[in-house]
Design a protein around this nucleic acid. Sequence first.
DNA 1: ACCTGAACACCGTTCAAGT
DNA 2: ACCTGAACACCGTTCAAGT
Lengths: 228, 228
Amino acid sequence: MERAGPVSRRNRPAKSALSQETVVDAAMTLLTADGLDGVSMRRVAQALDTGPASLYVYVQNRDELIALLMDRIAGDIPLPATDGADWRERLTDLMLAAIAQLSRYPGVAVRMFATIPTGPNSLALTDALLGLLAHAGLNRQTRAWAVDVLALYIVAAGTEATLHTERGTPHLSQGAPAPGPNPFAGLPAQQYPNLHDLSEELTYGSFEQRTRWSIDVLINGILATVAE
Amino acid sequence: MERAGPVSRRNRPAKSALSQETVVDAAMTLLTADGLDGVSMRRVAQALDTGPASLYVYVQNRDELIALLMDRIAGDIPLPATDGADWRERLTDLMLAAIAQLSRYPGVAVRMFATIPTGPNSLALTDALLGLLAHAGLNRQTRAWAVDVLALYIVAAGTEATLHTERGTPHLSQGAPAPGPNPFAGLPAQQYPNLHDLSEELTYGSFEQRTRWSIDVLINGILATVAE
DNA sequence: ACCTGAACACCGTTCAAGT
DNA sequence: ACCTGAACACCGTTCAAGT
């Protein structure tokens, strides 16, 4: 009773058969090379030696193609051990791994605000996140809302990290502090007394340091804030 | 010793003179009507009865135009009272107001991940945020990193709210809970035990309720997590 | 059913020429 | 110095025609 998906007829010597997999493969190659901006329907088609219209057999539109790319990317984030002593460390590591993975593919994290991820890999990650929160002794509603903020933070930090990647500023997978002159130092103290006063502290610390601190803030906050 | 900015010569009967202000005005009108996607250089030019090339006298490129729009939007967020008893309530209100304001202009919040806001209105808001944190008894480094996470959260929540606006789901400035069927209820319990188990809780609560809880999480977390 | 060239309705930005 | 039409190099998506 199964209906087979569309089958390509390009089994000729020169061209290989198209399929959703080959389309996503080609898109993934472009994504890795040029970021999401490089993944246009026309360029994907070109890479497959065909016209853009051909892709619409395997993918509804560019948005669906991007959703498929997202889930591939999610699939490369290692799931945490389901059991173990330190849930907090496992949670932190999972979040850092997710942010680092998103930072590798410029333009992808931003789009995740739009899509509640429904791919199997993304769902598995969310489920794992919830599993870790269960070890924290939180009630059901708190766990549910907590996974929401944590996911939002992952996507937000991933988006930020991506921009650091594009600008060449160091981020998660690199060391070294930020370079360049302090943009807050020159601000008028009259108008912006607090920014002026804290200009040193505002630029202190690497992206990784700040991210680790932020994750601590979130976890401490969740532990201290019962929902309901 | 001042150099005057470019002055338009279109002081003829039919067309009014162009200036950066008129360009941003026209862009703002389009933004309000159609969101940021509606603000193309060509459409702005059309609204001003000219060609797109004319705009480049008053604005370096579309990115700069968007940055100018952002600061206009920031200017409509009321600054908190500089003194008062309850810093925590003032901080919460400021964050909710900022998120609500961003939710009114689809497409804008997303772009704020890219830009460290340098407009006068955005800087004033950040300065005010830091001022409120000073009342919380936090050390200097904690205040600096705190304003970072809070700003990141505002932009992230604003981006999310925007999508709710676009989809017609209720959000900050509206009441009522979310409609539609529960997307987690039908998930296989074998593969996603936690998502399946918490499907009720995952969809419980309005956007405003969740946002308020998240802000509480952040504030509690910041108070519990000293930087340095 | 799959594949495709051509077209439709758009983009941002640049450039040479006009005033 | 300001303004502009036209062009350049792109987009996503649709459609009619081919196999």
